[in-house]
């Protein structure tokens, strides 16, 4: 019953502007699409907006046109959350990612609705939401396993115990895929946070609705504020700041624009940022998920400690 009710009401949102004719009973409450910084939903500090439209030019929502200052605030939030998130038990991170999948499953109808508003067909939208849920489950499972696959105990020739483990790079800025507005978003966020990083993400510019609604999913999944921060706005305006910032450790870019790629590589030298391009990844296939995506934002730490020489001290086995 409840689901049906949601569906019904959301359907009338999709016909925004003609509610009067249809609903004489009550006025539809429209959602304000805001950004997500440090676990809160502020509007952009700039007070600016842009109108998200579908392919037919129909207005979908007034969306925050985030500024450089919003991005800086988000980086502060992400840096503040990094110690706690990376220090959490990997098992616990897995639980939270799993919780995100649960929340997404529960709000499936809303996402299908938003995707269809943004020019997807119903069948495609449903498939995309299902894949996004499954992708979260996939990475939830990796949270406490990829370390085992990519670690090593190194047989050094001296009398030392030596091991290498992956650790998160730090704060990652992400320009989300422009087309798969939900699946792409989930596919780039999940491996980054599964590995213990925190991130600031710029949503698809033309299809921002799902990103904001996904922030609500994150916000109700016991995810600490600041681990994921989501902005909406223009790639052309914000991309340089995403890669300029001295407290960002890595930047992910998912489009094939070679001039943006070159700009990013040049600016990355400012603080030896790690630059990761996902320009030919098909997110709706099996190739869109892998523990190697997690490893893209990991560092390898090697630790040494001396071993008392057992043979030398005369003890036998």
């Amino acid at each position: 019953m409840e689901k049906r009710a949601i569906k019904k009401s959301s359907l009338s949102i999709s016909e925004n502007g003609i509610e009067e004719k249809k609903s004489t009973r009550r006025l539809e409450v429209l959602k304000t699409y805001k950004i997500y910084i440090g676990g809160q939903f502020p509007r952009t500090e700039s007070g600016r907006y842009y109108v998200a439209k579908n392919a037919d030019g129909k207005q979908l929502a007034n969306v925050c046109l985030s500024s450089r200052k919003d991005f800086r605030d988000a980086v502060v939030a992400a840096r503040g959350a990094f110690g706690g998130w990376s220090g959490r038990a990997a098992f616990n991170r897995g639980q939270i990612l799993y919780r995100m999948a649960e929340m997404l499953e529960g709000r499936k109808a809303q996402f299908i609705e938003e995707l269809t508003q943004q020019d997807s067909t119903k069948g495609k939208a449903e498939k995309e939401v299902n894949l996004a849920i499954d992708r979260l489950i996939y990475y939830a499972g990796w949270c406490d396993k990829f370390q085992q696959v990519f670690s090593a105990v190194n047989p050094v020739a001296t009398s030392h115990f030596n091991f290498s483990v992956p650790e998160p790079t730090g704060v990652v800025s992400i320009i989300a895929p422009q087309n798969d507005s939900l699946l792409g978003l989930v596919s780039v966020i999940a491996p980054v946070i599964a590995g213990g990083n925190t991130c600031v993400l710029l949503a698809s510019e033309s299809k921002p609705l799902c990103a904001v609604t996904f922030a609500e999913v994150i916000n109700s999944s016991d995810m600490p504020g600041g681990v994921v921060n989501i902005l909406t706005g223009k790639v052309s305006e914000l991309a340089p700041w995403f890669v300029d910032h001295m407290d960002v450790n890595a930047t992910i870019y998912c489009e094939n624009d070679s001039s943006v790629q070159k700009m990013m590589q040049e600016k990355s030298a400012l603080n030896v940022k790690r630059i990761i391009f996902y320009n030919s990844v098909k997110w709706d296939t099996e190739k869109g998920q892998s523990p190697y995506f997690i490893m893209d934002t990991q560092e390898i730490k090697t630790t040494w400690h001396p071993i008392e020489n057992i043979a030398g001290s005369g003890a036998g086995y």
Binding site: V272, E299, W304
Partner: peptide, 28 residues
């Protein structure tokens, strides 16, 4: 400690089997 190689109760040890490299502006 945010660094690629950590020596505990030793220092400046190297081995071909042991990965070496940095975090942050020490490279990648």
């Amino acid at each position: 400690m945010r660094a690629g190689v950590i020596w505990a109760n030793t220092f400046n040890k190297f081995d071909p089997t042991s990965p070496f490299g940095g975090y942050k502006e020490s490279g990648f």
